[in-house]
Design a protein around this nucleic acid. Sequence first.
DNA 1: GCCAAATAATTCAATCGCTGAACAAATAGC
DNA 2: GCTATTTGTTCAGCGATTGAATTATTTGGC
Lengths: 412, 412
Amino acid sequence: MTPTPGPGGAVRQGSLRELNLAVVLGRIAAAERPPSRADLAAETGLTRATVSAVVEDLITGRLVTEAEPAPRTGAGRPARGLVLAGNGPAGLGLEINVDYLAVCVVDLAGRVRHHTVRRADLRPVSPADALHRLVELAGQARAEAAAQGLTLAGAALGVPGLVDDAGTVRLAPNLGWRDVPVPTLLAGLPPLTERVDGVPLIVVDNEANLSALGELHADTDGPSSFLHISGEVGIGAGIVLDGDLFRGARGWSGEIGHIPVHSQGRSCRCGGRGCLEQYAGQEAILAAAGLDRADLPADTAPLRLAELATAGSADALGALHEAGTALGIAVASVVNLLDLDTVVLGGGYAPLTPWLRPPVLDEISRRVLTAAWSPVTVRPAALGADAAAVGAAGSVVRRIIARPAGWLARTG
Amino acid sequence: MTPTPGPGGAVRQGSLRELNLAVVLGRIAAAERPPSRADLAAETGLTRATVSAVVEDLITGRLVTEAEPAPRTGAGRPARGLVLAGNGPAGLGLEINVDYLAVCVVDLAGRVRHHTVRRADLRPVSPADALHRLVELAGQARAEAAAQGLTLAGAALGVPGLVDDAGTVRLAPNLGWRDVPVPTLLAGLPPLTERVDGVPLIVVDNEANLSALGELHADTDGPSSFLHISGEVGIGAGIVLDGDLFRGARGWSGEIGHIPVHSQGRSCRCGGRGCLEQYAGQEAILAAAGLDRADLPADTAPLRLAELATAGSADALGALHEAGTALGIAVASVVNLLDLDTVVLGGGYAPLTPWLRPPVLDEISRRVLTAAWSPVTVRPAALGADAAAVGAAGSVVRRIIARPAGWLARTG
DNA sequence: GCCAAATAATTCAATCGCTGAACAAATAGC
DNA sequence: GCTATTTGTTCAGCGATTGAATTATTTGGC
């Protein structure tokens, strides 16, 4: 959210306009109903004159448009409502996962304008090949966006693994990737090689992080600080603090899967014992429920489990209780450490929330000292399985809203 | 660090100067050697003319002074170095702990200008009485500060417990406090009742948080993101991210003492089992080392343990190893979650670092996946036992440096 | 149906703070 | 003693915000 001033942090004369562009646009984006220029002036403390000038810049830059049906209130000249433009810049979101590729386009207002999921087992496919297929989908998405009058302002790619600052995937165990230099592999493959505002068009990030951002985006009046847990084969968490993703010193935050929950329990491939993943990872739950993982694709497993649990299968219920307890122990540690009041169960956990929530809440109320004063909410994610793609596209849009000056400078 | 613009986040004409005052003052505070106006202009990108104007404001506001011995380099007119003033505003730091009261005064440059510790067992003393004694010490500190030409610009009080936004101590188990409304009790007790800049003069915060801030303050060229762990009777952690204390949704972050490390282990008063505190808390370590807690005051216990360990006592070494392992398990979870690269052992842990560090590092390298690529540093805190008081005073000073306009508006 | 009150948005001179260039100050080296 | 060099200040110019006045557009009362 913090707009970046000039080099060295100093605020130049021109930064003033840049900052106010961001403030006004941010208000328009966050508003419940389309605000008028006068509303914005009252909210921000700026003069109506200034707001008018700022809004004019935003309108000519295709970031904002006037809403036709102005909200009427009483006497006086009717206000003209301002909304985020639906024909300006848009974000391209990409996702590579174990058994599908996803691409989507999200406009400034957060609406998903295009969405494609292509199922394919990507484990036997080489990284270069997988990226090649993805670029093909991206090309279609770009054409579709153009047809809708949108201009892609950037792209973000989510992968289920650790990504460093340069965009190299250091390790994606479930995909079998190791030290894959995504930007290099994408070089020469249009349409993702351009640069926008000095920044490469494409940003690579962890899937769990982007899913958390997607949640923030999807539920705009939800809390701005929460823990989002993606339950896939591995377990990843995205930490959103004050409306911003917390990435850690090197962008590797949220590795929650190896928090020890049963210290003398099953040994884990990480070298520790009793890691969360051994009890609440997808394979562990399926095994405990007596299901064979080979029988069903990873993305249908949670739904199958939910069916069984609804039908009253003792094995399934027991497996979910055990998983929920383990999850609760880990979540309690996180809540104690960060004092968050909302936990979102995402990815494969979302459809299982009815069964996971009770044991999770149970462990929290037992272990979190402050839970007595202010309760912790545990709820399912608003977005579905491919939240990461939507979150990726949303992160692009988000950056434009936080710093509109960069976009405006491009178009002139 | 982020200076607060006007209401609604808007940047008014005058905010420009406010922001640049903060930028320039921040640079002077962070510089290795006294920078000249020209240096600041080069660093920040502002004009020398602007920097001169800003610096003039800072000098007349007694925040900055010109250093006499200017650092010479080559030809040309000699620069005049700028340093934080030693005769301007200062922060008052207060601490109430189980067996002592502490008061200190820290000037803008971070120098401790006054420091008093009064030993007393405060468990049998009523909160009102304890605060009364503290106010007495604060009065002496204020007189002392005035004698040195300093003006107290605010005060912060650290307590070993949970504090809410209003400054009420919700729970301080080791002190026996529950729902103690500190600001109310202090009302009517000068010299801590005034208001500065609309904010009450005194701020109450958790001791572990303030100790972490003290560490940030004491080691200015250290990293700006770290985990600071205070090992007292309870175990508290302060999380510093990017030079700012992370407080959580309600200010109750850092409750690390009840992370489960041995799930089927000793049952804890919190209701869980195998909590960290049961293995690495001061009482647990002493018991494991075969020492009777009643024999020695809490604040000398760590030193006694260090003596025994140095002398090669098998009991002491075993106790420290067990504590270090438990601590390592918990710290590994935190590092996995937040991706921090530095862990500071503070409070009672500081003198025990030589024995705690190896098992902690051992658990980290075993459990933290990313530790292979970038190692985690574990080191003792720079400040001693009453780091909280210094950190409290430092937090006051820190606020002035981050937002000098407030102070300047007071003095005119 | 017409006028007054009310609210929204724009226009314009004034002002505040930064910029850029010219200038004064102070020192090292030749 | 003179020149090159760097620091810090002065001053006109300019961009962005401000505040008041003006225009635009509707509701409500007579």
